[in-house]
Every structure is written in structure tokens, then in C-alpha cells.
């Protein structure tokens, strides 16, 4: 793809620029789609229709209309807020989320950067998100926001551990941190004769690892049942309480981008990334992008499904779940996977 771009663009910064905004385009289009999808999913799960009018067919333009409304809204900053930090926080949040996409292999022909520590990088850069949320919560000068920020910090720091440990189990099997290489390793045509060579089919412990990973990423993305930082019924909106208009919109965008990021990460780690589920059939860079995004969207859908089904945990239960169950389990699972690797 780089060659393709370079064939009609002068090499140098412009190519880099075009290259680097591809994920942004994907995120923005996806966010519009995902917010609409979330409403439709919620609607149909709740025995109603969701948006139906804006734009005609199933209210497809509802998010766009909301976006236009949000841009027009007054940008309110609380009188006693720390104006500078308050205004900056949403941008840092989005920047952190966006920067992480650089290591995601969208297809066999496109990855933002072939850094050899890809997975590790994603984990590190998303930790910026918690800093930005603390910033938002503190700068809002609102006690509910501050409580939300505290919760976020505790939650993100804790749930990073099981995430990293489950990712480690993938790394033990593949022996690399580069997501592109991890994905390529899963392109072996079949496993057991009929299953694709995805890592989730590698051993039973990989299934457990995926489940643990998924739970931990739910918490990292602040989705129900772990959406304590926002928890609109307790903390009003947590760190988002004082935000309105496009700044709030950026937080929303970050949340959805985060969902996609972690889903794509899950897809790349466990479900073969851009590999076709039918061996070499329907394979290739463009089909790869399709498969990758499809797998990501399926995981995003599961997250939505959970959101509209489950209640929310309490903050101490959240910590219990992490420290008493997820972390020990993921370590044990890691050891078992290592043993499996040694034996087979």
C-alpha cells in the first residue's frame, strides 16, 4: 500500500501524513456507525426500534444529526474549573486512544508502524487515558467528577495487570510483540484439519486467556458492567459531568475508539486478525481489512450486548474481581500455557 501511495504522491512527509490519518478516518466513520449501532442494538434488545426517522432508512443519519447539534452547542466551562486543564483533557484522551491505533495491523498491507514492541506499546499508550480522565475529573471542580476520576485511576491501573498477563500468554506462543507478526503466525491454513489456525484454537487455555482478556478489556474501556467512572446513576456522569458539546463528544469518541481498539487487539491476538476464516479463500490486503474490521465489530457488538443486559458492579466488587479472581487466574493460565508449549 505504501508503494501504491508513493506512486502518485511525492515521497516524504505527505505520505507519512496520509498514512497516519487512515486510522483517524476509520475511527471517525466507525464512531458514527457504532453509536448508531449501539442505539439500534439497545432498541431491539429493549423491544423497541431505536432511531427510525433521521435520514430515512432506520435513522442512519441520527448520529450525524447529533454531531451537528453537538458542534453547535455552547462550550461551557464551569466558573471555578481549572480552565486550561479542563479544555485540554478531552484532547489528551483522544490522542492517547488514537495513538494506540498505530500498532494495529488493519490488513496485511497496512499497519501504522512496524514497531517491534507493538502490543506493549498499545498497553502503555492507553494508560495515558487514565491520566487524562484524572485531569478532566480534577479540573472540573466537581466532587462527583473527582470521585469518578479516582475510580478510573484505580480501575485502569488494576485491570492493566490481567490484560498484560493474558497478552503475555499470546506472546509465549508466538514469541513476538509485533502484532503484524503475531497475525502472520496465525495464517496457517487449518488447525485440526478444519479450524483456522487462530490462536484461540491453539489450546483450551487460550480460550480461557481470551475470556480473561475480554473481561479485562471491558474494564479498560469502561464498559458495563465496569462503567464505574461514568456510572450515570451514581456519579451523575463521573468525569464527564461538567462537559458539554464537542468536548463531551470527544470523550464519547474516545470511549468508542477505545472499544474498537481493544476489540481489534483481541481480534489480532486471538482471532487471526486480518486472516480469512476460510484459509486462503477470500484472502488479500483488502479482504484482510474487511475481516479485521468485521472481527473487531463482532467483539464491539458483544460489548454492546453486555451493556444492555448487565447491571453495574460496585467499586469494591470491581477491585475484588480483579485482584482476587482475574489476576490469579491469568497467572495460573499463563503457567499452564507455558507448560502446554513445552509439552507439545
Amino acid at each position: 500500500m505504501q508503494q501504491f501511495l508513493e506512486s502518485f504522491l511525492p515521497a516524504g512527509p505527505l505520505v507519512v501524513f496520509v498514512f497516519s490519518i487512515i486510522p483517524l478516518m476509520i475511527i471517525l466513520v466507525y464512531a458514527l456507525f457504532a453509536i448508531w449501532l449501539e442505539r439500534k442494538v439497545a432498541g431491539h434488545m429493549q423491544d423497541r426500534l431505536g432511531p427510525m426517522r433521521t435520514g430515512g432508512w432506520h435513522g442512519w443519519a441520527q448520529t450525524i444529526a447529533d454531531l451537528v447539534k453537538m458542534i453547535q452547542k455552547e462550550d461551557i466551562v464551569p466558573a471555578k474549573a481549572d480552565r486550561f486543564l479542563f479544555k485540554m483533557a478531552p484532547f489528551i484522551a483522544f490522542a492517547a486512544s488514537y495513538a494506540a491505533f498505530v500498532a494495529i495491523p488493519f490488513s496485511s498491507g497496512y499497519i501504522g508502524s512496524m514497531i517491534d514492541v507493538g502490543v506493549f506499546y498499545i498497553v502503555a499508550i492507553t494508560s495515558l487515558l487514565s491520566v487524562s480522565i484524572i485531569m478532566a475529573g480534577w479540573a472540573s471542580n466537581n466532587k462527583w467528577s473527582l470521585l469518578g476520576a479516582m475510580r478510573t485511576a484505580a480501575q485502569t491501573v488494576s485491570y492493566e495487570i490481567p490484560t498484560v498477563v493474558t497478552i503475555l500468554s499470546v506472546i509465549i506462543v508466538t514469541g513476538t510483540l509485533n502484532l503484524m507478526e503475531i497475525t502472520e503466525l496465525q495464517s496457517g491454513n487449518t488447525f485440526l484439519g478444519f479450524l483456522p489456525g487462530w490462536l484461540i484454537f491453539h489450546s483450551p487455555f487460550m480460550v480461557i486467556a481470551f475470556v480473561l482478556f475480554f473481561i479485562a478489556t471491558l474494564a479498560e474501556a469502561h464498559r458495563v458492567p465496569f462503567d464505574l467512572p461514568e456510572s450515570e446513576s451514581e456519579l451523575v456522569g463521573g468525569y464527564q459531568t461538567e462537559y458539554s458539546g464537542m468536548r463531551w463528544g470527544l470523550f464519547m469518541l474516545t470511549e468508542y475508539a477505545d472499544m474498537l481498539l481493544l476489540s481489534l487487539l483481541g481480534a489480532a491476538l486471538f482471532f487471526g486478525g486480518w486472516n480469512s476464516p476460510f484459509g486462503s479463500y477470500l484472502d488479500g490486503p483488502l479482504w484482510g481489512a474487511f475481516w479485521m474490521l468485521l472481527k473487531g465489530m463482532i467483539l464491539v457488538f458483544v460489548m454492546m450486548w453486555l451493556r444492555w443486559t448487565l447491571p453495574r458492579l460496585r467499586v469494591d466488587q470491581l477491585m475484588n474481581l480483579c485482584w482476587k479472581y482475574l489476576i490469579p487466574l491469568s497467572f495460573v493460565n499463563l503457567v499452564l500455557i507455558a507448560l502446554w508449549e513445552m509439552i507439545f
Partner: peptide
């Protein structure tokens, strides 16, 4: 009550 706990869907089921 479900809504307070964070479960949104039962609320709408009840309202139906």
C-alpha cells in the same frame, strides 16, 4: 431500581 443498579433494559421491559 434496576436502572439505579445500572441495568437499563429491565426498565424498558417494565415500562412496556
Amino acid at each position: 431500581f434496576g436502572l439505579d443498579i445500572g441495568a437499563f433494559t429491565p426498565f424498558l421491559y417494565c415500562f412496556i
